[in-house]
Simulated scan of single mutants.
Amino acid sequence: MLEELLRPETININLESEDKDEVFEEMTELFVASCPGLDRSEVLDSLFEREKKMSTGIIQGIAIPHAITAKIKKPICAVGISKEGIDYEALDGKPVHIIFMFLFPADDAALHLNILKRLALMFDVPDFYKSLMDKNSCAQVVQAIVQAEQSL
């Protein structure tokens, strides 16, 4: 399922952002560059609106920001890794190092929930977090995610 959403052009293993606002901007650029029909401002507004409800920094060191938009027909995913960590206002108060950002179409809530559930299960796979942090290329990140998903 996640394998179908992953594309090297929407993965950044060297995030430069220092806080949540910056990382939303930086990762939104990955979406806009790979999906020319997306409006940068609309994507950011959707992400920030969802984030107002509750921080998506929900698992130690990991954030899963997501939003719904009518501008896409199928979900898209961006992955970002920060070796230094990002001040994300996470629920545990600790920096975030791995970010899975999703945009979901407005008409498929079941798929939206299924993808988020599947990702949460993957973080229960031993050493998955460490594995992602150790990767040196986008292709290696994709491979690690695919392997973790297949182990479920």
Rank of each mutant, 00 (worst) to 15 (best):
D87T: 14
G61Y: 03
V141K: 03
I99Y: 11
S131N: 15
I68T: 11
A109W: 07
V23M: 09
V141I: 14
I62K: 00
L15Y: 06
L132F: 11
Y88E: 04
N12C: 13
L111N: 05
R50G: 01
P75R: 03
A144H: 04
Q147P: 01
P65Q: 09
V125E: 11
L119I: 15
A70P: 09
S82K: 05
E22K: 14
H97E: 04
M54T: 11
E84F: 03
L38P: 04
Q143I: 01
K73G: 13
Q150A: 15
M122D: 04
K135F: 07
L6F: 05
E9K: 11
S137Q: 08
N136L: 11
E25I: 08
E84S: 15
S131R: 15
E16S: 14
E18C: 10
I13Y: 03
P126K: 11
I81Y: 08
K73H: 07
L113I: 14
A139Q: 15
P126I: 07
A120P: 05
T28I: 05
P8A: 12
M1W: 09
A120G: 13
A63V: 06
K130F: 13
V79E: 00
P75Y: 00
I76F: 02
L47E: 07
Q60G: 11
E89P: 00
F100A: 05
V23Q: 05
P105V: 00
M54A: 13
F100V: 08
E16M: 13
A67V: 06
D19N: 15
I64T: 14
K83M: 03
E49P: 00
T10A: 06
L47V: 07
N12Y: 07
K135W: 05
S46V: 00
S41W: 06
Y129G: 02
R118A: 09
K94S: 14
G57V: 00
S151A: 15
A148Y: 10
E29S: 14
F102M: 09
E22I: 10
P105N: 08
K71L: 07
K53D: 09
V141R: 06
L44K: 15
V96H: 13
E29K: 13
L38H: 06
K94Q: 13
G85K: 12
E16Y: 08
E4M: 10
I11N: 02
S34W: 01
T69W: 02
S55F: 03
I98G: 02
I72Q: 00
I11P: 01
E25N: 11
S131C: 15
E51S: 02
S41I: 05
D134W: 12
S17Y: 05
A78W: 00
E16I: 10
K94E: 15
E26I: 04
P36W: 00
A106E: 15
M122K: 04
L113H: 07
E18M: 12
Y88L: 10
T56C: 05
V142C: 13
A67C: 03
F128D: 04
F100C: 06
C35I: 14
E22F: 10
S151F: 11
A109F: 10
V23C: 12
L152R: 02
K74D: 06
E49V: 00
I99A: 06
S46E: 08
G85C: 12
I13G: 02
I115G: 02
P36A: 01
